[in-house]
Design a binder for these strands. Structure first.
Lengths: 336, 336
DNA sequence: CTGTTAGCGCGTTCAA
DNA sequence: TTGAACGCGCTAACAG
């Protein structure tokens, strides 16, 4: 690869002139400028981003750490981040933590070593407060994505989980349901906790007794499934709400095992949901995550943070859309 | 951030000694080594990957360009690439071309400017031969992923589309089908062409007349959908095979519009398919892409290529698994 | 309007 | 066993 000195020699100018035509950072006579461009063309020269970054101490790159590269919602966020990054002239360095605090820490280290201008932590594992504290010390510009920790002094972007769940459940209550099974999962995860809170909000609003509601929490999926089976056998809930796609899968399987189906025997709705829900039965009512937009929002926050390092942290919440489908439609019709 | 000189001063050694303990590149007295490590700890020093890369002219990073960050199969490949990358001590720089030749070119440029050690082009747009030729000139280590161009001198990894399709169709023929609609899409895309070829292979093997088969090609999805509707109204095909997830979506919608359903009225199978197919009806027979493994394989090829720049190019084809489900089970049972 | 030159932070000869 | 010094390719301050 040709370097700047070769281009300079060939154009009979100094390297600084070459640099300046490249970056448009000061005026150069049109004629010499042409000579330089010609020389660049002739040599096939390309600016070395490494040397440039070293000198300017800016890499024009950002790091994204996601905690589960397997999930579809992840793909959406990565997509959004990538899109907004190029839009802002940034390139994206991607790392996956696989929900492992250790790998997450390593990933962050690697990214910082590479001198990324900023960091986006998407769905950071709930065990990472330690990491976050260490980040607070060094203060590399950092955005938290998806999982929001209100008490932490970071820019954050998430979805409006609590309010959306409240609306969803309020609607179901409106169509006659009074006994729910909420498959809440590991409520130490902020996202899941917010959804559970939204549920209790709705129950409270409608003066439903929480004692009549089965709120199933826990990290162990097998235990959650078992508990749901038990609750369904007792026959009381008329509606099941699952708080994530994995929990929805597990719930549908459990329902199958106890011989209940939706919407016939029980209403069903899920957060995060499934792709192509329209094509298959049961068509399940779903809350779509604005994953792409969340990625975009994260980059935008980051870019602003880079401009104003000392502005006070902001939290952005994006609205989610409830996609109503047949799995929640039956109740109050066939029965009436 | 502390630099090596500060560490050196603090440990009362020269910077070269610090460098050597960091990289284990020559023997240093255990005692001085300890002093250095202590100084590193005390200063919170971290090696600057940029300067290091500049000096060594190796970045220990690879670039991945995918053509549609929206698709699930993409997520799998990215996941696999990321996984294998860290496994090999490489970090991943991600770019998305959105199936646009121009953006693809820009992305490759950006990555080369950043001096990535190697490049993986996943599902490169079919319009990129021009780009590929320019890559042949510069010869940055490059792997082609998913879409295989047999005539090009690159390392490539893909799936065994043709053979899998042959097996799938052979099986369907075995259960009595003789008239198919193959929704093939844009057969300029190698992946789709291979699948179509697999279909004709199977037809040939079974001595089915191609004149009786409806092979629907074309880039315009609306036209493809219309043509499928027309074919189904004629009522002849007893089995529909869709060559990608988007084509499957479109096919199921078209079937719905003409009032045909699977497996009742017609058998159905799809390449790439849907997540959680087991939970919903119709449960559709699907060919799962080994997306993750393909990503891993690509990185492995790349790592070997970096070791042996002049070895002759290799093509790796991964086997796919056919997941048989109810959408292809009915025929020959209810009828017999 | 253009050229000279000093680093950015590191790895690596060459000497000692 | 260790240190001094050069240069990777570039930007920017300074000089003209």
């Amino acid at each position: 690869m040709a370097t700047m000195v070769e281009v300079a020699r060939r154009a009979k100018v100094s390297v600084s002139t070459v640099s300046h035509v490249l970056n448009g950072t000061r005026h150069v006579e049109p004629e010499t400028r042409q000579r330089v461009l010609a020389a660049i063309e002739a040599t096939g020269y390309r600016q070395d981003a490494l040397a440039r970054a070293l000198r300017r101490s800016r890499t024009d790159s950002i790091g994204l750490v996601v905690s589960d590269a397997g999930e579809p919602a992840f793909a959406g966020m990565v997509h959004g981040v990538e899109h907004a990054a190029v839009e802002n002239g940034l390139t994206l360095v991607l790392a996956n933590s696989a929900e492992d605090a250790d790998r997450e820490k390593k990933a962050v280290q690697t990214l910082l070593n590479r001198r990324v201008d900023g960091l986006i932590l998407a769905r950071a594992a709930q065990s990472d407060p330690i990491l976050l504290q260490s980040l607070e010390l060094e203060k590399p510009p950092t955005i938290l994505l998806d999982r929001i920790f209100p008490e932490l002094p970071f820019d954050q972007v998430g979805a409006d989980n609590r309010e959306t769940m409240r609306q969803l459940v309020a609607h179901l209550i409106g169509s006659g349901h009074t006994r729910f099974a909420l498959v809440a999962g590991d409520t130490r995860v902020p996202t899941l906790r917010e959804r559970m809170d939204g549920f209790t909000d709705a129950a409270f609003d409608a003066r439903l007794s929480l004692a009549d509601q089965a709120i199933i929490t826990g990290k162990d999926t097998q235990a959650v499934a078992d508990e749901l089976e038990g609750v369904m056998k007792s026959g009381e809930p008329t509606a099941v709400v699952a708080c994530s796609t994995p929990l929805a899968v597990l719930s549908l399987q459990a329902l199958g095992r106890v011989g209940r189906s939706t919407p016939g025997d029980v209403a069903f709705a899920a957060f995060d949901g499934f792709d192509n829900s329209d094509l298959f039965h049961p068509q399940v009512t779903t809350v779509r995550q604005p994953a792409f937009d969340m990625g975009v929002a994260a980059v935008n926050l980051l870019v602003e943070r880079l401009k104003a390092p000392d502005a006070s942290p902001r939290t952005v919440r994006l609205r989610q859309r409830i996609e109503w489908r047949e799995s929640t439609e039956r109740y109050g019709r066939s029965d009436s």
